[in-house]
Write a protein that binds this DNA or RNA. Structure first.
Length: 510
RNA sequence: CGGGGCGUGGCGCAGCCCGGUAGCGCGCACGGUUUGGGUCCGUGAGGUCCCCGGUUCGAAUCCGGGCGCCCCGACCA
């Protein structure tokens, strides 16, 4: 298509009588260069273009890393704020542990080493000398925190210990994509210690609920809660729980995980407490994490062919005001109105931005902010000034039908209503999309067909690890989770035909 | 680690086959014009042509070596 447009332009060079054709050709070409690749054409290309063109991220000089630009970082800050508030409300406190972990720590929990050693970055030299013991750049902090916990916890009176840290971690991945998988990423990792298995289990599930509540209500991403299979379990955990979300290309994205670590780390790091009866007992610990991957989830859940669509709760700008004017006289009258409305919204706590760029046409700005996903656009021009009106346009409903003409007097209320509407409609859209692409299957052929078509399959499962791997080799899909709410009756195992013990959700995943 | 491709102003590319000292689009700066759905015109700034070596009067272009990146297959929040 671009090739065609280019050749048309070339042919028209110097040709007489084809002026309008040339202009049309040029305009088409310019449009195609400005437009984003369609999702249906190439989803991962769409994703990359959006991430870079909406200024979420920039390429980094280091292999698998990215620079998170201010617009992208503000989305992350919104995520942090939403989670941190929920963590605090449930009694957790923030702390910070070192980036560097003695290599010997990582080795103390057998499964943990095995799980992480392939992707560790290790510092062997520092201060111009070789270190006596290499330092691992943390891939996660169970080990250092476990060591600290063993010091801090003496008696049952010290429990539960509820700690969270906001940090960067490094996992040396081979294939990386901005936000979804990078060598370094930002996240929070919660670490708690409890007196009993049941308390630890309750904490693990509580934190999963918090992730789900955040995903649904703040990020407008419907998620399915469930337990991970043994193969997908965190290295060193008793049980791993997950929230799974469906992206716009129907691939699954694990968007947050919560682990009941049992007494594995307590035993490896000697985290013990004295009971009321003066007995030494090992603690039961948990850990749970959610990362900058969530930014990618927001992009891939809500984005469309025009670009980002941000849920108002997380949008850096909830409203962008585009002033429209010709003459200087118009300009000052328009800007007068704009400034008053900006203040009105700002005072109400709405994140509002005025696009004062000169030399960019309003039409350009409309498209630009649509690409960046701003939920609501307010246009104010001479006609509006005359009538004390304004135009509101919603990002989730493009074109004429998403526009409304309001009075400036009712602007605040109209904007608040609209923001709430958009938040809800993004969630509804995503939920409808997801539900339309999950199918219950009762035979393996059916499962294979559904996966091949790109959808998710829900099936009864009673297979072994080896069976699960065989299904993965055969179809490319993995068990994303055993959902808490299976939504259907158990039959025979879809793969082995034996008695099934749980319902499993199969999908291709990121 | 196996297979494929690419390194040329900030970005995307042409030029290379057939050597003659670099060009286009976008972006950027300035001036004007325009502005209710991706304005247009003019002027201008900006390049170790990935690196090292060789051939040659002369290398982005030919030859040798190296480095880096991207895409596709085995692991992962």
């Amino acid at each position: 298509m671009p090739l065609f447009a280019r050749s048309v332009e070339r042919c028209n060079c110097g040709a007489a009588g084809q002026a309008s054709g040339t202009i049309r050709g040029k305009r088409k070409e310019a449009m195609s260069e400005q437009a984003v690749t369609a999702q249906s054409e190439d989803f991962s290309r769409w994703y990359n273009e959006i991430v870079y063109r909406a200024d979420l991220a920039a390429p980094s000089p280091v292999r698998g890393c990215v620079i998170i630009r201010p617009y992208g970082y503000e989305i992350w800050e919104g995520i942090k704020a939403g989670l941190d508030r929920r963590f605090k409300a449930t009694g957790h406190q923030n702390a910070y542990f070192p980036l560097f972990i003695p290599e010997s720590y990582i080795r103390r929990e057998a499964q943990h080493v095995e799980g992480f050693s392939p992707e560790l970055a290790v510092v062997t030299h520092a201060g111009g000398k070789e270190l006596e013991e290499p330092l691992v750049v943390r891939p996660t902090s169970e080990t250092v925190i476990g060591e600290a916990f063993s010091d801090w916890i003496q008696s049952y009176r010290d429990l539960p210990l509820l700690i969270n840290q906001w940090a960067n971690v490094v996992r040396w991945e081979l294939r990386t994509r901005p936000f979804l998988r990078t060598a370094e990423f930002l996240w929070q990792e919660g670490h708690t210690a409890h007196a009993t298995h049941d308390e630890a289990e309750a904490e693990t599930l509580q934190m999963l609920d918090i992730y789900a509540d955040f995903a649904v209500n703040d990020a407008a991403i419907p998620v399915i809660k469930g337990e991970k299979s043994r193969l997908e379990r965190f290295a060193g955990a008793l049980r791993t729980y997950t929230i799974e979300a469906m992206m716009r290309d129907r691939r699954a994205l694990q968007s947050g995980t919560s682990h009941n670590l049992g007494q594995n780390f307590a035993k490896a790091f000697d985290i013990r407490y004295l009971t009321e009866n003066n007995n030494q007992e090992f603690c039961w610990t948990t850990s749970w994490g959610l990362s900058t991957r969530m930014v990618g989830a927001v992009v891939m859940t809500h984005g469309d062919d025009k670009g980002l669509r941000l849920p108002p709760t997380l949008a850096p700008y909830q409203v962008v005001i585009v002033p429209i004017y010709k003459s200087d006289a118009q300009r000052s009258a328009v800007m007068d109105n704009v400034e008053r409305l900006r203040q009105l919204l700002d005072c109400a706590g709405i994140r509002v931005h005025v696009d004062t760029r000169d030399g960019q046409s309003p039409g350009f700005k409309f498209n630009d902010w649509e690409m960046r996903g701003v939920p609501v656009r307010m246009e104010i021009g001479p006609r509006d000034v005359e009538n004390s009106n304004a135009v509101l346009a919603r990002r989730d409903m493009l074109g004429r039908q998403g526009k409304q003409f309001i009075s400036q007097a009712g602007a605040l209320e109209a904007v608040q209503t609209l923001l709430a509407d958009i938040q809800q409609s993004l969630l509804d859209d995503a939920a409808a999309f997801r539900d339309a692409h999950i199918t219950d299957v009762s035979s393996y052929d059916e499962l294979r067909g559904v996966i091949e078509a790109g959808d998710w399959a829900r099936a009864s499962w009673g297979g072994t690890d080896a069976d699960e791997l065989a299904v993965k080799d055969d179809t490319g899909a993995t068990i994303r989770c055993f959902p808490f709410e299976p939504d259907s009756e158990l039959g025979e195992c879809v793969y082995t035909g034996r008695k099934a013990d749980q319902a499993a959700l199969f999908a291709k995943a990121y």
